[in-house]
Design a protein around this nucleic acid. Structure first.
Length: 462
DNA sequence: AAACCAGTGGCTACATATAA
DNA sequence: TTATATGTAGCCACTGGTTT
């Protein structure tokens, strides 16, 4: 009986990522795989979306089908969980891969390129210790020629925990797991000092205690993401290399009242037995389950329309921001990605004029045939009025980018909704609704691209 | 100029408080 | 009782100031 591959993800599945993972899977399992042109098809049952996508356009004798489903994590969860089994994964099943993806190279940010999300691999370790942990770089810029010390330090810590790095070329002579605790301490001690006024990450090794200095306080609480990642990563590596004594964080900047919540760092501190100088850490337990199928988020709607448009019409996305904070690029006619400015007038914004920020849609689609650009704002059904209101704010991005790079195109603004049980749309500004039963509902004034996409999808399954 | 760490920004989800 | 407002946690990426 052939098995299926299941991609469970919090984001929009990207073809480039799917291909990388398929190749990695084939290599690890020594399967032959032939990848043609990947296509992602929403699966319909009785004309309704089954909240499941199928990936086609490749061949592998050991894989029957490849499915994608949208999930959301309960704690600090990785971006993709991959299962290799016949049936749809449940919480009792074990993934073969846990993959965290980033677009950040260390030339852009040391903090986010390596430290910030390391904690995710510590969480996955406690839930699924046998899943292969992968840090996947999906760089849109050239990789930095010479790696920074911080990047080398952080990556070697990840390697020490058994994390594999994909999508980057790493010199195996430099990037290797640490073998001893002293090696970790020595490498950090040899790095450049932190600027004055900052709290440096430094080790003090005593007989029965290793102290690590590092700031954890940020904006009123324990929320300094990069250092939460860095310090828990270091502690995990020390434990992995056999340190049984105390691990104490110093100069963290926290007061007792800041640690009462049991946030992700406190959970990991419990699991790894980390202490905070001068503070008692409360008992905190991790969430019972690592993930759940997402049947709630607005992204279900925008991801659906995005994939239908791209796979069933000639249209495609020139900008996307499904996750709200994901790094987004605007794609020009020539296919060149450009980073968007955040403010129309930065000085005025910093001075307090919050209107000077450039509002961005969740998705921008291009319809070359009809010379239309479609700004899409995604919302949950019950918040549809907010979505309609937000459509008014897209003048800046249209003036600065769309009109400049796509002159002569008509710009359409529309709202895409997910949720509810309604079977019709009243509001003219709503172009498409995917309700929670999987009904596909077009608005009266839906963009032609939407109509074409849904028609082709229905025809495909008819 | 490169590289260090701190801080900011914008979004969602969720829990709780307050108003209708 | 229900709808709306508010606050916190979390997510991911980028910017800023300072030192080397």
């Amino acid at each position: 009986m052939k098995k299926n591959l299941w991609f469970l993800t919090e984001e929009r599945p990207k073809k480039e990522v799917l291909i990388k993972v398929l190749e990695k899977f084939a290599k690890d399992y020594e399967f032959a795989v032939f990848i043609d042109a990947i296509r992602i098809l929403p699966i319909l049952e009785n004309g309704k979306f089954a909240f499941k996508y199928e990936v086609v356009g490749f061949r592998c004798n050991n894989v029957d089908r490849v499915y994608i489903k949208t999930i959301s994590g309960n704690s600090s969860a990785v971006d993709f969980l991959i299962f290799y089994q016949k049936n749809e994964p449940t919480l009792r099943d074990k993934p073969i891969y846990a993959i965290e993806e980033t677009k950040t190279d260390d030339s852009e940010s040391r903090n986010t390129g390596v430290y910030q999300r390391a904690i995710k691999f510590l969480f996955i370790q406690t839930y699924y210790p046998n899943a292969k942990k992968i840090m996947l770089y999906y760089l849109r810029i050239d990789q930095k020629k010479v790696a920074t010390s911080t990047y080398i330090f952080g990556t070697r810590l990840l390697l020490t925990l058994g994390v594999e790095v994909l999508g980057k070329k790493l010199d195996p002579k430099i990037f290797k797991p640490f073998k001893t605790i002293d090696e970790i301490i020595a490498l950090k001690a040899g790095m450049k000092n932190a600027p004055k006024g900052n709290v440096p990450i430094l080790f003090t090794k005593l007989d029965k205690k290793i102290q690590i200095s590092g700031r954890l306080f940020k904006s009123g609480g324990l929320s300094h993401d990069p250092n939460i990642g860095a310090l828990s990563l270091i502690a995990a590596a020390l434990r992995r290399l056999g340190w049984k004594g105390e691990i104490e964080i110093t100069r963290h900047g926290l007061l007792q009242q800041h640690v009462e919540g049991g946030n992700k760092f406190i959970q990991i501190a419990n699991a790894l037995n980390i202490s905070l100088q001068g503070i008692t850490i409360s008992k905190a337990v991790m969430h019972k389950s690592y993930w759940k199928y997402d049947m709630d988020g607005e992204k279900l709607g925008t991801i659906f329309i995005h994939l239908v448009a791209e796979n069933f019409t000639e249209g495609y996305s020139i900008f996307e921001n499904h996750a709200g904070c994901e790094k987004g690029y605007f794609i020009t006619k020539e296919g060149k990605p450009i980073a968007l400015e955040k403010y129309s007038d930065k000085r005025a914004y910093k001075a307090g004029n919050k209107k000077k920020i450039i509002s961005i849609p969740d998705l921008i689609l291009i319809d070359f045939g009809r010379s239309e650009v479609i700004d899409v704002e995604g919302k949950k059904y019950k918040f549809r009025k907010d979505g309609i209101k937000e459509l008014r704010g897209f003048k800046d991005i249209e003036d600065r980018y769309i009109k400049k790079y796509y002159p002569g195109f008509e710009i359409i603004r529309t709202v895409v909704l997910f949720g509810g049980v309604e079977k019709k749309i009243v509001e003219l500004k709503v172009g498409f609704l995917l309700n929670e039963q999987g009904d596909l509902i077009l608005g009266v004034q839906a963009p032609e691209l939407f109509k074409e996409a849904i028609k082709n999808l229905l025809d495909f399954w008819a």
